[in-house]
Amino acid sequence: MNNRRMLNKTDFEDFVDSLLRAGITVIAPVRREQGGEKVEYRPIHSPAEIVLSGQPPVRPLKEVVFPPTEPLFNWKQTKASVQIEEVPTEFKETVVVGARPCDAAALEIVDKVMGWDYRDELWFGRRQAVTVLSLACPQSDDSCFCTAVGLSPESTRGADWFMSSVDGGFEIEILTPKGEKLLERCKDRCRETKGRTNAMPSLDAKVRANLNIDPGKVREWLEKHFDDPLWSDVALRCHGCGACAFVCPTCHCFDIVDELDGIGRGQRRRNWDACQPALFTLHGSGHNPRKDQTARFRQRIMHKFNIYPARFGEVLCTGCGRCIRACAAGMDLISILSEIDRKSAEEGA
């Protein structure tokens, strides 16, 4: 038996429906309630809601395993004694249908830091519960650059199933034991297949035309240019909000806060945080080691293209382009990386 299957469109919808009926949470790209053409990953109630074509969801898949806010524990205080109530670290079975390759890959990239010096129980608890069915990317735009960071519109990384749209249905590549387990649920509906019947034309060349760089060269340049006029020039435009980080599939910083639910009881929660607002590094003393936007913006680029590669062997970016689409100030990572690439070539010559 090989690991490729064909599933026609009706059978695919029946399969999704059967997952829902089995009480499994299914998350897929769906239209925003009030947002016109925009789509987001959301739990669905019917396979008819799924939108697999068009632009990628505005927000990435990360919130499925790393919610914008989540409790770490509940506490109660009576006089001097404090009782802690743990939160569950096991989660309900969830299947993501139609993840973009750039989103699926991000989960594996972030696994490295989440399991590094401390194993993040909540991240891995959800990772364990989630099966990811990604789909060969159906559409790119002028913000996409996955091919410049070692991925592609047909990258299977991070996926349990990799689906390609073919005439009348999907060709499916089963990639992991989790994927095989899910296959059990639709064995009767699939048939084996050798390979691509009539795959869609790849978007590869189109994405490559947006940006073609060597992340290794970028890293070498960054290593030598902690101080460079590039940082102060580019950062002038940045407003210092967290939009880029919050739509980024790989940004994973968080803040921890205590909130009261009433007198003597409350929750400790963790919330998404971002390195561009000044508050991120502001000390209690009033001192801020990243004193201005120049320092803060440099940090964003350094972390993704120098620090993370140094520690984990790859860049913290999947080229999804969401930061470019989301930025109100027109900060453009493609332009910035091209500029670094150009400077690097100039200095190397």
Partner: peptide, 27 residues
């Protein structure tokens, strides 16, 4: 809303030295 504060940062009239949303004592 995920509290990225893009609304506040792009607003020319949101210029407070310390925004009330960033205060923690009390929050």
């Amino acid at each position: 809303c995920t509290r990225c504060y893009a609304c506040r940062q792009v607003c020319p009239m949101c210029f407070c030295e310390r925004c009330i949303a960033d205060k923690t004592q009390p929050a």
